[in-house]
Design a protein around this nucleic acid. Sequence first.
DNA 1: CTGTTAGCGCGTTCAA
DNA 2: TTGAACGCGCTAACAG
Lengths: 342, 342
Amino acid sequence: MSPTIKDIAQLLHLSVSTVSKALNEYPDVAPETKQRVQEAARLLDYSPNVIAQRLQSRRTGTLGFVVYYGGNSISDPLFNELLASMLDAAAHHQYDLLVSGCPSGTSRPAAYERMIKTGRVDGFIVDGTDRHDDRIAYLCREEIPFVAFGRTDQNLDFPYVDVDGRAGVCQAVQHLIDLGHQRIGFIGLPSFSFCAHDRRQGYETALQTNDLPLESDLMVEVEAGSEENGYRAMVQLLELSHPPTAVMVSSDLMAIGALRAAQERNLAVGHDLALIGFDDISLAAYTHPPLTTLRQPMAEIGQRLVDMLVCLLENKPLPERHVILLPPLIVRQSSGERRDNP
Amino acid sequence: MSPTIKDIAQLLHLSVSTVSKALNEYPDVAPETKQRVQEAARLLDYSPNVIAQRLQSRRTGTLGFVVYYGGNSISDPLFNELLASMLDAAAHHQYDLLVSGCPSGTSRPAAYERMIKTGRVDGFIVDGTDRHDDRIAYLCREEIPFVAFGRTDQNLDFPYVDVDGRAGVCQAVQHLIDLGHQRIGFIGLPSFSFCAHDRRQGYETALQTNDLPLESDLMVEVEAGSEENGYRAMVQLLELSHPPTAVMVSSDLMAIGALRAAQERNLAVGHDLALIGFDDISLAAYTHPPLTTLRQPMAEIGQRLVDMLVCLLENKPLPERHVILLPPLIVRQSSGERRDNP
DNA sequence: CTGTTAGCGCGTTCAA
DNA sequence: TTGAACGCGCTAACAG
């Protein structure tokens, strides 16, 4: 086994507590013994047992992150980027990140309850909020530290980071209108999710601002943001007697499915049909044609989430309790050029 | 704070050890007291403190998984699927999964050393092996329990799960030859990685078996498996004075970049040019045209890795120490129809 | 069958 | 400046 403080103490004929102090830079220890202890620690290749430290400090130094296989959470291409940035930030603060699946069949709050009650983690990052989110409600009620990526429509005050999907989509749809489009379709994510609703509002706002009618035929809502569902939704729009000339799609994955549906009907996207996605996954630049989309700044989001949660856990004041980031519109070729009025 | 065994003991006027035994289903405790204890535990909503359990048992019940932001590990689209299946399997065995980034600037073995020496984890899953892998060498030397996804060319015996890239690519290239292709290009991953080398061997074997010449012009090796690099490699192949009529690409991400390069030159992939990828990421079915590729069975891989590691940690015999899975060839449209001989 | 005692490895009193 | 004593919450050995 790896050496303990006790081993160092015996080697140097010192007490365990003195060695502990020396290793933790306490002021009340002779410079000389401190030196000796630290040398011995290096010699024996000593590493503190974090389990023991955690038991005694009653803090785990661990952030919890619960993912859902079935849902959109882990299958989202941006998940990787989020995880990478959170790992980076957590390491920077000397925290571990415990990733846990939610066993299917159990309620979502139960997964969080288990992790916190058994003392595995000190707090949570919550990803992918719903408009009415039982996890958020639970965590607020129990006063468990957490930061969410996403807002809710519940009347609860909790710290979050979010992307302004409404403003983003509004800007994107305005871009389509500026290019000369009048019939613009919308493919939305399931509306129980907050961001789905948020993005849809951006679409509606943009149309209303430009005195364009809202037509329910032009708005399709899918069950999950897969390529398959994007494909199907696009087929549905293209089969309308009076199909749209442009479509705002709520995720890049769906946009790629939509692209394929258009291409199978020999529509040249970027010319016959304008398409805009959401996310800016790395593949978006490599579709044919490259996808115009709204970029989610995942690196910043992950870092902010972790920074905020660490503040909460260490009782430091939060610089900002609510962070809302604007997703920049990345114009590529799928949205096309200015169009002659029909 | 959440209640402890001590709280239950005081409530029932029992000793701490009796309560502990009752909760852990020890035989030497009166059925009646066991009943009372378990009722009280439910009443108080007791959960055991896993940190304390770990300290006393000297086992963390945690599997370690180190990822690299820079490398291919976390940015790989299959990473999600691997993680999901590992989480599922780990939960099934009652293990936690601690995901940790490798701080850039430190050596790779150092990340593993830190996790095991500080007692954060009991063992590791290692992903993305190199032909000469310093992590594997370290873990073998220190006799730290681990299972690798991937093999190495070092003379070390360790448990692993791997995909037979050689046989897979060989089959795919044979498929191209059977369709009538004679000039077949190859886009490979960096050859320090084992699987890159393995796949390349499959390509070479297939050509040799069919008495086709190996031409170094037709084999491109990139620095990392990104769309961008696939794009560039394909441009390089297409600019040859005598370009290939088919290309085997070592990853779907690169294949998507390659697809785009071909399309920009107005080549109809699946007709003018055949393309086969590797991985079968979910998007592969939604490119234009859909991508023929070799499927990596990630769900099975993740589960096997975890099952094996758990066996190792619990000193159970390993059913198989070396598992090699065949990647099935998924024929879609990018590889095209049978071709008239030129 | 139950309770007492001890110890996992560490940090933190408080005397000496 | 050092060390003895205690406790974090739990399990395990041994007495009773």
